[in-house]
Nucleic acid binder design. Structure first.
Lengths: 190, 190
DNA sequence: GATTATATTGAATATACATTCAATGAAAAT
DNA sequence: ATTTTCATTGAATGTATATTCAATATAATC
């Protein structure tokens, strides 16, 4: 393995550790030292791999934004809107156990969108357009008569805010059972 | 007005300002100086009124816990569970404009429950038992055939997590329209 | 009006961390 | 084998910010 590959590996290890901790304790309460200890590695070495703590967060959020984009690309084309959303939630909830990093990434993206988070990371996290594209999906569902009437954008924001809230609850208590995706899709259903 | 009363007034002013800022920017990102500037008052004087920033948070959370207790006391007795919850949400959403502090307090209580927040405040915020008492309400609703089957406690956690998510969204964007409370109660409805 | 208690200020201090750095070890290139 | 490059460490530095403090103003009490 070349040095470059090694370095890439190590960077990934740091990123995954940081992701865990950011979701577990929040960005501000996670100290560089905490990440270094968990990796494990000396504090100073962290800065050999990442310019700063914020840079680390930005890289994570970029990964998250990338993932979100590719996920929402073509997939939602044909199947009914309610099934699509149920499928998405079901998968995300099962990731909570099987592939926590996917789940964590989702939770982090939501957290970084909040005021008070580093501005650059925040912008990237908000650039994914998830709410907007779901609102189109909701419009479609409304025409098909399966979703409630009401401003689709507002419905979409509420839907995702609920999802965010529930995923944070699950992140906080890993023993919590996953809810039935239908419960949350009910928000939209007529 | 006696000095004691004056002091009490001033403390309240500080508490309300801090509440605004904690919800607006988050606890850690709100500096004592920010609060002092907003009140306004000198930074040093803050410590004449409150021992520490954490003490300030604790006092807020105590107020919130107190309010929660009295709100949930007798009120929920007779009316159907769904109406009770809809009424609660409707009121909370309208407070977002009319009496922001009530709304903010609710949002803060949710935020403080998260890991990484000061431990003492967190304990108090978690002691309110809202989730538990709502789960009883949900059991009742299930018996009456208006709510979904499923673990009432889990339903309650999901319900409140959704509410929390939506309220944080509203707190983040004060121009956001309030959702129809029925949307959220739909999570529970059969 | 003099004295005492409280409110207020802004600068000084303490602390917690992010970040830098000089030194050392290990691997790669020559 | 020597040199060069990169990895690694732990201690030093810098910075942000909570907290303290000495000094001053204002209000209450006598």
């Amino acid at each position: 393995m070349t040095r470059k590959e090694q370095k890439e590996e190590r960077r990934k290890a740091i990123l995954m550790t940081a992701l865990d901790l950011f979701v577990e304790k929040g960005y501000y309460d996670t100290k560089i030292t905490d990440i270094a200890t968990a990796v494990p590695m000396s504090t100073g070495l962290m800065f050999h791999y990442f310019e700063s703590k914020e840079e680390l967060l930005i890289e994570l959020v970029k990964m998250g934004a990338e993932g979100t984009k590719s996920a929402s690309a073509g997939d939602m084309a044909d199947i009914p809107a309610d099934l699509f959303l149920k499928g998405f939630l079901g998968q995300m909830f099962s990731y909570a156990k099987e592939q926590p990093w996917v789940f964590n990434m989702f939770v982090l993206m939501g957290q970084v969108r909040r005021k008070g988070m580093p501005e650059e990371a925040r912008k990237i996290a908000m650039s994914t357009g998830t709410v907007e594209s779901t609102s189109m999906l909701i419009s479609k569902g409304q025409k098909d008569g399966i979703f409630k009437d009401g401003d689709p954008l507002l419905l979409s924001r509420c839907f995702w805010a609920s999802v965010q809230g529930i995923m944070e609850e699950m992140a906080m208590d890993r023993t919590m059972a996953a809810p039935d995706p239908e419960w949350i899709v009910s928000i939209l259903r007529k």
